[in-house]
Design a protein around this nucleic acid. Structure first.
Lengths: 146, 146
DNA sequence: TTTGTAGCAAGAACTATTCTAAATATCATC
DNA sequence: GATGATATTTAGAATAGTTCTTGCTACAAA
């Protein structure tokens, strides 16, 4: 089968991804956004933008890295995924929206989600200035699985 | 007074900074490292490498940005200062070595140290995999001072 | 002094990310 | 459907923080 140029560069409506809705949190899920999101959901590896790019190329051979960045940014802004940063390493992306931290295993380079024990309210443990409105908390651990 | 090139580019021993020792944690404190460290101690603003660079130019007109990066890296590796990252913004540097978090005030762009309430052991609150050795914890808060 | 190692300066190089411009797709309305 | 307005994608250029390279200078040990 030979695809026309129009078919190859199609967006959302053709070749739909049945298991991903056409809209999430008010964001229209184009074909590219679907593939990016699907890849993140499937992998538990907190991939970088470039890893997403390479991972979805099989499904979307004409996708560009800029589009991957665009998609990731859109998904983050609509609170569909989270962006995670370790030091100055490339950003990683995470489909787990529960409040959680990240443990960076130095020996393998892998990243694991870390849940908080039940009933813990983090801001209770911190000596915050009065009248502080916290919008986001990020907890990062670095170490080794001995 | 006219300085020879050799005098202008001198390192640690000339024009000593009396209040900073010649060695900290096994790191020889050259003139450049002293000025970088002094600047960090004086400012409470968690400066970036570039801000340090501009801040020490008066004392060290010939210093280069690469040297500032080298100094900061050396100080970090010898656990004399801490490197702090917010998202993908430029790294900031912090002379406070106590275990603490950072609150990023979105309205002013300023960064405040956040102490933990006494008796809190952070790892107790996290659901870590068994046999985990934690080497470093980073807590970042983002929000506003209402 | 000589010799080896560490540190510095200047600028080039690197890399993750963002921007720009043009093409294409989608949506709303006819 | 067709048409015009808006959104999205693409490719490549541009940006910015940081690191690397090279040549030189300083310091330490013998």
């Amino acid at each position: 089968m030979i695809l026309s140029f129009a078919e190859m560069t199609t967006q959302a409506s053709e070749t739909p991804n049945k298991d991903i809705p056409e809209e999430i949190n008010g964001l229209r899920m184009t074909r590219q956004r679907q593939e990016v999101y699907r890849f993140l959901m499937g992998e538990r590896i907190h991939p970088t933008a470039n890893e997403v790019f390479m991972g979805i190329k099989k499904a979307l051979p004409n996708v560009s890295l800029a589009t991957v960045y665009n998609c990731l940014e859109a998904l983050v802004q609509h609170k569909i995924i989270r962006q995670v940063n370790f030091d100055r390493e490339p950003s990683r992306y995470c489909p787990n929206l529960d409040e959680h931290g990240h443990f960076h295993d130095e020996t393998t380079g892998t990243i694991h989600d870390v849940k908080f024990k039940p009933g813990i309210n983090l801001t209770d443990l911190l000596d915050l200035p009065p009248n502080t409105v916290i919008k986001d908390i990020e907890i990062t651990l670095r170490g080794q699985l001995a």
